[in-house]
C-alpha cells in the first residue's frame, strides 16, 4: 500500500512539472507574439525563490553576443500566477544599458529596443521587484538592421 502511495506521489509531482513546463512554453510563445512584428531569437525562462530580508534580490543571468548595426527588442512577461513582477535589465559588463522598469520614475515597459553599435558579449539580468519569488519569460528578438 505504501509503495502505491509513493508511486502516486511521484506521478503527481511529474504531472505538475509537465503542466508547469507547458505553461512556460505557452508563456514564451505569448511573450514572443507580444513583441510584435519582429524575429524571435532566444528566450530566457526564469523561476526564482524569494530573496532574504535586506539582501540583494535573486537574479538570473544570461549571456549573449549582440551585433553592431542591429536593433534588438528585449521583452519581459511575468507568469500570471507569479508572486513578483519581473524586471529585465541589459548590461554591458557592469554598465546598465536598459531596463523594463525605470526605478526613478516607476515607469514600466513590456519591452525596450536596443540599437546596438558594438559587437560583443552582453548580459540580461532578470529579477523580481522587491526580491519576491516569481516566474517569468524574457524574449530577445531582432527588430531590423539599420
Amino acid at each position: 500500500m505504501k509503495a502505491i502511495i509513493k508511486t502516486i506521489s511521484v506521478l503527481l509531482i511529474f504531472i505538475s512539472t509537465t503542466v508547469y513546463s507547458q505553461d512556460l512554453t505557452q508563456l514564451v510563445a505569448q511573450c514572443a507574439a507580444n513583441a510584435g512584428n519582429v524575429t524571435y531569437l532566444k528566450d530566457f525562462v526564469v523561476k526564482l525563490d524569494a530573496g532574504t530580508l535586506g539582501g540583494a534580490p535573486p537574479t538570473a543571468r544570461f549571456a549573449m553576443i549582440l551585433s553592431k548595426n542591429a536593433m534588438y527588442r528585449f521583452s519581459i512577461c511575468t507568469a500570471p500566477d507569479s508572486e513578483g513582477d519581473a524586471v529585465l535589465q541589459l548590461m554591458d559588463m557592469n554598465r546598465l544599458l536598459g531596463s523594463t522598469f525605470i526605478q526613478a520614475t516607476g515607469k514600466e515597459f513590456p519591452y525596450f529596443d536596443f540599437k546596438c553599435q558594438k559587437t560583443g558579449v552582453y548580459h540580461v539580468f532578470i529579477s523580481f521587484k522587491e526580491g519576491k519569488a516569481g516566474e517569468s519569460v524574457g524574449v530577445l528578438s531582432l527588430v531590423k538592421k539599420f
Binding site: T100, F109, F112, D113, F114, K115, Q117, K118, T119
Partner: peptide, 26 residues
C-alpha cells in the same frame, strides 16, 4: 583589428516605447 570608441547609452521614448541608443561603437 577591432577597436572601440567610448560613448554613453542614450535612452529615449518614442510613442510610449523605450529605445536605447548605444553610442559606444566597435
Amino acid at each position: 583589428e577591432i577597436t572601440y570608441t567610448p560613448g554613453e547609452p542614450e535612452p529615449k521614448e518614442e510613442n510610449g516605447m523605450l529605445i536605447i541608443i548605444q553610442n559606444e561603437e566597435s
